[in-house]
C-alpha cells in the first residue's frame, strides 16, 4: 500500500469553504498523512529534519494549495527552498526522493476557460505549473498531472461536495495502487480518472 503525504498550505483557511470541504474528505483516510504547514510553522521556521523524515516515510507527495498569483502561497515556496536541500533532494548525492510521485492539488477562483491561450489568464494551468514540474523532476521524482477545482468563486455546496469526493477517490485509488503510471501521465488533470466527473463548468 502506497503512503500519501498531503502538504497543505493556506494562509487563511478560515475563509475558504472549498478547501475546508476538500480537507474534510481526505484528512482521515487510511495511509494518508495530512500535514498543515501554516498551522505548524506560523513563523515560517520550517523544521527541515522533520519534513525530510516525513518525505522519506511516504511514497506519494501532494502539494495542496489555493492558486495565488499563478503560484503557491509563500510558505510552501519557503518549504521548497529549505526542505529540498542540495545533496539530499537533488545533486550528485541527493537521491532521497528518487522515484517518489508528486502532484499538485489546486483550487482556482476563476473558471477553467480562463486558463487557455486567448483566455483571461492567457496560459493553461499546466503551463503555469512548469516551475513545480521541473522542481519535482530535478529531485528525481515523477511529476503527475494536478488535481484541480476551478471556479471556486462561484461554486455551490453541491459542486464542492462532488470535487471533495473525487479528490478522495483519487487519493484512495493512489494508496491502493489502482492507477498505473501510464494512466496517470496520460490525463491533463487527475480529475479525469474519476468517471463521474461531469460538472458543469460555470
Amino acid at each position: 500500500m502506497a503512503k500519501v503525504l498531503v502538504l497543505f498550505a493556506h494562509p487563511m483557511l478560515e475563509k475558504s469553504v472549498t478547501q475546508i470541504e476538500l480537507i474534510k474528505s481526505i484528512k482521515d483516510l487510511y495511509a494518508v498523512t495530512f500535514h498543515d504547514l501554516y498551522q505548524l510553522y506560523p513563523d515560517y521556521d520550517i523544521d527541515v529534519d522533520r519534513e525530510q523524515r516525513l518525505l522519506i516515510n511516504h511514497d506519494i507527495i501532494v502539494w495542496q494549495f489555493p492558486f495565488y498569483w499563478y503560484s503557491c502561497p509563500p510558505l510552501l515556496k519557503q518549504w521548497i527552498d529549505l526542505v529540498l536541500e542540495h545533496g539530499w533532494a537533488y545533486g550528485k548525492d541527493g537521491n532521497n526522493l528518487k522515484d517518489k510521485w508528486l502532484f499538485n492539488a489546486i483550487t482556482t477562483g476563476g473558471p477553467q476557460f480562463g486558463y487557455q491561450e486567448g483566455g483571461f489568464n492567457k496560459y493553461s494551468l499546466n503551463q503555469f505549473l512548469a516551475p513545480f514540474e521541473q522542481t519535482v523532476t530535478l529531485c528525481k521524482m515523477t511529476y503527475l498531472p494536478p488535481f484541480v477545482m476551478h471556479g471556486t468563486h462561484r461554486a455551490n455546496d453541491q459542486e464542492r461536495k462532488v470535487y471533495a469526493d473525487n479528490y478522495k477517490q483519487i487519493l484512495i485509488g493512489l494508496t491502493q495502487g489502482k492507477f498505473t503510471l501510464d494512466q496517470l501521465k496520460k490525463v491533463s488533470y487527475l480529475n479525469e480518472l474519476i468517471p463521474s466527473t461531469v460538472i458543469s463548468n460555470n
Binding site: 527552498d81 529549505l82 536541500e85 542540495h86 545533496g87 545533486g91 550528485k92
Partner: peptide
C-alpha cells in the same frame, strides 16, 4: 545554518 539558502555544496558540485 540554513542549507536551503546557503548552497555551498551546490557551488562546489
Amino acid at each position: 545554518k540554513d542549507e536551503g539558502w546557503d548552497v555551498e555544496s551546490l557551488r562546489e558540485e
